[in-house]
Design a protein around this nucleic acid. Structure first.
Lengths: 228, 228
DNA sequence: CTGTCAAAACTGTGATCACAAACTGTGACC
DNA sequence: GGTCACAGTTTGTGATCACAGTTTTGACAG
C-alpha cells in the first residue's frame, strides 16, 4: 500500500479498490470475457490480495464479475441476448423511476451540472473520445439519480450499469457519432427546469430504451462480442 | 470446519456459509437491527473468519446486511418506510415478470410441487408455525421464479427477499392466521394450469402487493420495529 | 518443425496473525 | 448516588502463508 497510516475518515482500502474496479467496469475499460486475477489486480493497485478479494466478491454479487464454474477462475461476464434483454427491461423500469423522483429535489446548481455534463458528452462525441463519452454519460445520469433519495433503487441502477458497462463500450467504440441522438438529454434538462415530472420519466425511458436498443442490435448482428 | 476433505464438487465453504446466512435472513431468523460479528458467526458455523468475511461482504452488497458508517460494525438493517416502499415497488415489478416468464416452462411436476408448497403453507398457518409459513412461502415463490430462465431477475428477486425477510418475520410473527388471505396462491396455480400468462402476472402482482401492504401498515402503526 | 509430457508458475481458497479502533465493565472520586 | 477514567475485551481490517487445482512453459524425442 502506498500511503499507510493517515488518521481519520479515510475510506478503507477495500472501498478504494472497489471504487476503482467499479469505475473501470462502468467506463468499459474491461472487455467482456476478459479474465482477471486477484494477485494481478492487487499488484496493479499496490495492495495485498485481501482487500481485492472482498471487492471482487462484492462485484460478483452485483454480477459485474463472475467465477467460471469449471475453472473457478475470475472473468468479466460476456452478455447473451437473454441477459441483455433483462438488463434493458430492468434499466427501463428503475431509471425513469429514479429520474421521476429526482424532480422534487432539483436545484439550479444541479441543472447547471447537468448542462455541463451534457456539453462534455457532446464534445467527447464530436471528437470520437469514447472514454470521455462514457464518463460524461455516466455522470449525467447519476447526478440525476442521486437526487431521488431512493438508495435501494440507486443501488440497483448502479449494479445494472456495472453489468452493462463493458458491453456499452464494446458497442459504442465502433459507432460513429451521428448514430447517437442526444436530444433526450436536452429534453430531460428542459423537463427538469419546468418541473415536469411525467415528461422527465418519459424522456428518461426513451433515452435508456434507445441506448439499449442500439446494444441489442449490435449483439444480434455479431452473435457474440469478444474483443481484445 | 466439521467435514474437511471430501473429494469432488463440494461447494466451497464460503458458499455454504453464504447459503446458511441467506436462509436465516430470508426466514427472518435475524431480527432487524440485530448486530452480528464475524468471529461469532465463524465460531457458530465452525469455520474460520475468512469465508465468513466473504459471505458477509456478499450479503452487504445485496443490502441484506449493513456496515454502520460510524462504528464500522455489522448489523441487520432496520427498515424505514421509504426503504420498504422501494422494496414493495421493486418486488411488484420483478416478481410478476418472473411468474409471467415461468408459464412457458411449467410442467405437471412443478404444479404438484406448488400444490404441496401451498398445502404446507396453509398447515403452518393453521397451527401458527411462523417458521414453517416463511419457509413454505419462500419455496412456493421461488419454485416458480426458477423456471423463468431469467437469472438476472431471479437474482434481483433473491436480493429483495433477503432484504424483506427479517421484517416479514417481525410483522407476520404477530398476526393471526385469518388476516392472511391465501386465495392468490390457489388462483396462481389455476392460472398456471390453464397456461394463462396474463392471469399469472396479475395474481402474482396482487399477492406481492397484499403482503407488502400488510408490512407497510404494520410499519406505519409502530413507527419503528425493533424486537429481540 | 511437431507432438508429448513433466516441471514451474499461477490461480482461488482457507487459516492465522497483527493492529488499531470501539465497546465493555469495574472501580475511584466528587 | 452519579460520573469519569482506565484496563481488558471484542470488533473489523489488512497482510501473509500453505495448499490443491489448473494453466502455461519448456525441454526433449520423433
Amino acid at each position: 500500500m502506498s500511503l499507510s497510516t493517515v488518521s481519520m475518515e479515510e475510506p478503507s482500502v477495500h472501498d478504494q479498490v472497489y471504487e476503482s474496479l467499479a469505475e473501470a467496469l462502468i467506463q468499459g475499460r474491461f472487455a467482456p470475457g476478459k479474465s482477471v486475477s486477484l494477485r494481478t489486480l492487487a499488484h496493479q493497485l499496490g495492495v495485498s490480495a485481501m482487500p481485492v478479494r472482498e471487492a471482487v466478491r462484492r462485484l460478483i454479487a452485483q454480477k459485474a464479475l463472475e467465477l467460471q464454474p469449471s475453472n473457478k477462475r475470475l472473468r468479466v461476464p460476456s452478455l447473451s441476448e437473454n441477459r441483455l434483454q433483462q438488463l434493458m427491461l430492468a434499466r427501463q423500469w428503475v431509471e425513469p423511476e429514479l429520474a421521476y423522483r429526482a424532480v422534487a429535489h432539483i436545484t439550479p446548481d444541479i441543472i447547471a451540472q447537468l448542462k455541463s455534463d451534457d456539453a462534455q458528452l457532446m464534445a467527447a462525441l464530436a471528437e470520437g473520445d469514447v472514454d470521455g463519452y462514457m464518463q460524461a454519460n455516466h455522470a449525467f445520469h447519476f447526478h440525476i439519480y442521486r437526487l431521488a433519495e431512493a438508495d435501494l433503487f440507486l443501488d440497483m441502477a448502479r449494479s445494472l450499469w456495472l453489468q452493462s458497462g463493458p458491453f456499452m463500450r464494446a458497442v459504442f467504440g465502433r459507432l460513429n457519432a451521428v448514430q447517437l441522438p442526444q436530444d433526450h438529454h436536452l429534453e430531460l434538462i428542459a423537463a427538469f427546469e419546468r418541473g415536469d415530472a411525467e415528461a422527465v420519466r418519459r424522456h428518461m425511458s426513451e433515452d435508456v430504451h434507445e441506448g439499449m436498443e442500439l446494444m441489442m442490435e449490435a449483439l444480434k448482428s455479431e452473435a457474440e462480442v469478444t474483443l481484445s
